[in-house]
């Protein structure tokens, strides 16, 4: 009974974390369907509408949601004794394992590519105007790569649980 409750709670956290994290990407994809590069004027004037919008945007929750999602997913696999077989893409756990590998790439992309560049764009880390403009392009591409990768990951999450017969 406790085991089932633990797994249901972990799965719930996994869903909620994924929605908060990837929901950020999807919201941006819908509200800004085309890339609009920041300009020197946007970044040099703290009162410019785009700089104000940037500063008011949420910068922490989705990053920690990515850790919650990854951690709860890994916990479920570990609790079931599936972690090693999933990560080695063994048998019917291959879809889930592949999803976890791609999701791991996404977490690394978010924390080690997007966030360090975003800190430059926002001015949390000192950088020249040129560097900040270049960093804003990197953050955009990094986010879009994660948006693209989330599509197969969501498929593999579903296939791993409900579509084993398709790949077994």
């Amino acid at each position: 009974m406790e085991g089932i409750l633990f797994e249901v709670l972990a799965r719930w956290l996994h869903f909620v974390g994924a929605l908060v994290w990837v929901g950020h990407n999807y919201a941006t994809a819908v509200t800004r369907p085309r890339y609009m590069p920041l300009t020197a004027a946007d970044l040099s004037d703290p009162e410019s509408p785009r700089q104000r919008a940037l500063m008011q945007r949420e910068h922490g929750t989705f990053r920690y949601a990515s850790l919650l999602t990854w951690g709860s997913g890994a916990l479920i696999l570990w609790y079931r004794g599936w972690l090693v077989d999933a990560l080695s893409l063994h048998g019917s756990l291959a879809p889930l394992g592949l999803g976890m590998w791609i999701a791991t790439l996404m977490v690394c992309n978010l924390w080690f590519v997007l966030w360090p560049h975003q800190k430059r764009v926002l001015g949390f880390v000192p950088a020249s105007l040129d560097e900040r403009l270049r960093a804003s392009r990197v953050t955009f591409l990094s986010a879009r790569v994660n948006t693209m990768l989330s599509i197969p990951v969501l498929f593999l999450m579903g296939a791993g649980t409900h579509g084993i017969a398709l790949f077994g």
């Binding site: 994809a29 989330s150 197969p152």
Partner: peptide, 30 residues
Amino acid sequence: MLKLLDSSAVTVVLGVTLTIVLAALLRLAG
């Protein structure tokens, strides 16, 4: 290549294409 990601619609098409390719590979490997 990365410029393709400037468009949300193309990003989704690339994601769906990648999904189909990976699903096909998993099916073949299974």
